[in-house]
Structures are given as C-alpha cells and as structure tokens.
Computed example of a mutant assay.
Amino acid sequence: KACESAGHIFVDRSGPKKVLETIRQAKASLKDGVSLVVFPEGARTFTGHMGYFKKGAFQLADELQLEVVPVTIDGSFQILPRTGKWIHRHRMILTIHDPIPPKGQGTENIKATMAEAYVAVESALPEEYKGMVKNDDQ
C-alpha cells in the first residue's frame, strides 16, 4: 500500500494488455519529468551475481531519448539473500555511475545502451560477484 501511495509502478506480467498499461504509466511519468528507478533484471538473484538485463526500460529511454543512469547496489545479497528468512548486518554501497546519453534511436542503440549499463553496474561489484549467472526465473 505504501508503494502505491508513493507512485510506484508495478509490472503486471499476467498478459500483454497489462504489460502495455505498465509501459503507458511509465511513459506518462517520464514525460512529466519524473525519474524512474528500474531493476532491469526483473528478479532478485539466487547467487549474488547479476542476471541478464531485460530491455523494457531501455526501450522507453530510447523512445523518449532519455539518459540512463546505471546504479550498483553492493551488499544487499549479504543482507538478505533471495531465499533467506533473516536480515543480516552488512555494509551496503550504492554507486551512481555517469549517465549514458541517448545515441540515436533503434534496436542497435538499445543493445549498446544495455551493454554499457551492464558493464557500468558490474564494475562496482566485488570480484566474487562479477560475471553473469543465469537466474532460474529470468
């Protein structure tokens, strides 16, 4: 309820029309000048390693010609692993990377921006969590 009150947009994957409604809400927010925080993997990791990025947020940025600002969250896996039941005390570091400006429009731009964002996010992770590991629910 608190998330709804704060204006969070939830991705409803129950059908194509629901996904389109989510995209419409996101576009409206972005056009109003509101920044969106998107978790491009779509799910928490089972291993601490990053999964692959889904393209939805990158398509929106491409369509609206907006910058993408990669952010790395290091330490959240140790605080509460996906399958964990208890919160553990651990340091967490948030790294805000340089914005990635739009390079034009189209599929190649989307792929290039996704790759650049992935490299940026991964660069601030500890060595033990670098390298993609496919998550079972991606």
Rank of each mutant, 00 (worst) to 15 (best):
V19G: 01
A43M: 09
L60R: 00
Q25M: 11
L20H: 06
D74N: 13
A61T: 00
M50V: 09
A2S: 10
K18I: 01
V38L: 04
G15C: 11
S76W: 14
Q65V: 02
R13I: 01
D62P: 09
C3E: 12
R44I: 14
R24D: 04
I9K: 05
R24A: 13
R24K: 12
H49W: 11
P70G: 08
F46C: 06
C3Y: 14
T83N: 03
R13H: 10
W86E: 07
E67P: 11
K18G: 02
K85W: 06
K31N: 14
I79F: 09
E4Q: 15
D62E: 09
G42A: 08
G15F: 10
V38Y: 02
V71L: 12
Q25W: 03
G33C: 12
K85R: 10
Q65M: 14
W86S: 02
M50C: 05
R89M: 05
A6N: 11
Q78L: 09
W86I: 12
S76F: 03
V71N: 05
H8R: 10
L80D: 02
V71P: 01
S5T: 08
T45E: 05
G84V: 04
D32F: 01
K31G: 01
Q78M: 08
A26L: 10
E21I: 07
D74V: 04
V68D: 00
A43W: 12
S14G: 07
F58E: 01
G42Q: 10
R24Q: 11
I96Y: 14
A28P: 00
H88Y: 13
K54Y: 07
H49K: 15
I73W: 15
I87S: 03
G33Y: 04
V68N: 09
T22K: 02
T47A: 12
G75F: 09
L64V: 14
Q59Y: 13
I96M: 09
I9R: 00
L94N: 07
H49Q: 06
I23N: 04
K18S: 10
L60A: 02
F77H: 13
F10Y: 15
G42V: 02
A6F: 06
L64W: 13
M92C: 12
F10P: 02
K54G: 10
E21V: 05
P40V: 12
F39E: 06
V19T: 06
H49I: 15
T72F: 08
H97L: 15
L20Y: 13
K18D: 06
T45G: 02
L36D: 02
S29H: 05
E67N: 11
H49S: 07
A61C: 07
P81K: 10
Q59H: 12
L94F: 07
Q65D: 07
E63C: 03
H97R: 14
A2M: 07
C3M: 11
E63R: 01
M50Y: 14
H88M: 12
K55Y: 08
A57N: 10
H88S: 11
S14L: 03
G51D: 13
Q25G: 00
L60N: 00
V38M: 13
G15L: 02
G75Y: 10
A57M: 10
F58S: 04
V38T: 11
G84E: 07
L64A: 14
A43F: 06
K17C: 06
V68T: 13
